[in-house]
Amino acid sequence: MTAFDLLRFEDWTNPVPPADREVVSLLPEEDDGRPPLLFVPGLGHGAWAFAEHWLPHAAGRGFPAHALTPRPGGDLRAQVHDVVQTAASLPRQAVLIGHGVGALVVARALGRYPARAAVLAAPVLGGWSALGSALRANPGGTLPALVGGRLSLSARQLFQSGPPALTAEQITGYLSRLDPKPRAELLRRATPPRPVGDAPVLVIGSPDDRVVARPALDRAAAAYSGAPLMFPGMGHDLMLEASWAEPIDAILDWLTKQIK
């Protein structure tokens, strides 16, 4: 990280405009001092993607759980800003958990916010590999995005077995509320900044993910000197699959070891 990065010159000359932030929160019945979790969804997703299962499950295990919906039309810098500001507003040092492109946002936020720990779930950290996977799984929905159009996400891209509670119509309705138009910045692969305070980082994913290929998961984990924790038989949207409890329990078990 350079002195220019530390000063964040662009934030002084061209500050991120204010915006209302949609945060969904679920708190445990008893507060035993565990760090709050801040979930950050990816492209086309909102707080609803975590509110269905992972938020109540985390709160049931004693973790204050919050999910932040990305601001509509916000670029990567704005979304990083929102994550940092939301995390800083929580009463204790937070754990950042990003999914898909939300993992890219978390990776950037770790360079500014001293998180207690972080989890990158099915991370899309930039580069053309995710676009190549999208073209193979859903060419009709991906090709328009290459010429500035809208990216259409398909159930085949997101799920292996299908979500147990939400119907395909509900998910399509949720996705249509946001503009999942990919930005050029998502196609640039860059080395993520080192986490402030050397927060431990866990990378999780699935070898059957049709958005993030296994080599991309390995590269993401290697950037933090680790190996990815894998959940075979699951799709990209780990938090909505029929076996959604497996990855969140693994995350919470890992966090419990980190905070002892």
Rank of each mutant, 00 (worst) to 15 (best):
E169S: 05
Y113H: 05
G162R: 02
A118N: 07
G162E: 02
L158C: 12
H66Y: 09
G126N: 13
T69L: 09
R108P: 03
P139I: 12
T167D: 07
P139Y: 11
A155C: 05
A145D: 10
V83M: 04
P114V: 11
Q157V: 07
Q170Y: 07
V80R: 08
V83S: 09
S133D: 15
V83K: 03
A88L: 07
G73H: 01
A87L: 12
R150S: 11
A67K: 03
G100N: 02
Q170I: 00
G148A: 14
Q157S: 08
G98V: 05
A122P: 09
A103P: 03
S154C: 05
L146I: 07
G132R: 10
A67D: 09
G100Y: 02
A165K: 07
L143Y: 09
P91L: 04
G74N: 02
L76P: 02
P72K: 04
G141E: 09
H81L: 02
G148T: 10
R77C: 04
A168G: 02
A122H: 06
L125Q: 08
P139L: 07
L90E: 11
L76C: 03
D75I: 00
Q170W: 06
V124M: 13
A67M: 06
G148K: 03
S89M: 09
W128R: 08
R150E: 06
P163A: 15
L120N: 11
L135G: 06
L146K: 06
A155I: 00
G140V: 06
S154L: 03
G162S: 01
T69I: 10
G127F: 12
P70F: 00
L166E: 04
